[in-house]
Amino acid sequence: MGDGFLSALLTDPTLRVVGLGAGAVGALAGALGCFALLRRQSLLGDAVSHAALPGIVLAFLLTGSRATPVLVLGAAFAGWMGTLFVMAVVRHSRVPEDSALGILLSVFFGAGLVLLTYLQRTPTAAQAGLDTFLFGQAATLLIQDVILVVGVGAVAILLLALFWKEMKLLCFDGEYGRVQGIPMNRMDVLLTSLLVVAIVLGLQTVGVVLMSALVVAPAAAARQWTDSLGVMVLLAGVLGGLAGVGGAWVSTLGDGIPTGPTIVLLASAVVVVSILAAPRRGILWDRIRLRRTRARLRSGSPGSALPGDTPGGGV
């Protein structure tokens, strides 16, 4: 990357908007994604982003407006309904969560498709652009869209900071919080809402199909480098932001390089590197440690070969 990229980012106004938008989306999804990852809700992101599609089309059908805030509102509503659907199914039937998520993402997506094709044959036909939500098209980002992402994202991060210790407790041991009298159910609703907001804000850039990767990948990468939740959230934000900016830039390099997949591939590469090479947790370090221990064992100094610092591991 280097110079060409930096100067292009500074001088090219389109790239500036696109890069900024994709970066903000990546940073927001990365930071909030940490909580989804830690609560084992990685696939909720996938389901919510697919579920947003009918919301987007319905919002357009009802208002006739293509303005991003309108579509985002529709997406958030549908995403929320989908989340409630999964909760209700898990709670009131024997159908397990993974099946409920699968039904949510495919059925809502199918319904979205029906609405989209219905729209396509109506005379207004102003739907052009709605299907950019499938894979995202960072190039269609306007400066207003970027302001929306940054503004709403800032509010989300502020809320996260205000309720930081409650969020941490919710993810680690929510019941313990309830015993202390902290309204954990309300915190759960807040956190899920923030996640839904982060997802739907990213749809225009990355698309419904791949948005979940932007929620999970930066968080999974960041987790390997640190053992502190605060650092993890910051780092995931930075990594997600970089993947966003980098992806937006790469996709301007050639014709027909879609932004969404590029961003996802960059983020995935970061995950691979992190899992292999991050200090302490990296797989490569495990190998090296193992080899050293073996070498020491062979050289015959039993005292130092005791694996005294092996982690105990939870159940």
Partner: peptide
């Protein structure tokens, strides 16, 4: 199994990457 990520995260990491690669190749 590597213990670095949980199963749900593993699913959410693997298929978007493979799918993205395919989409990129098709686009090129």
């Amino acid at each position: 199994r590597s213990g670095r990520v949980k199963e749900d995260a593993a699913i959410a990491l693997v298929f978007p990457a493979l799918f993205s690669l395919a989409v990129l190749l098709i686009a090129r």
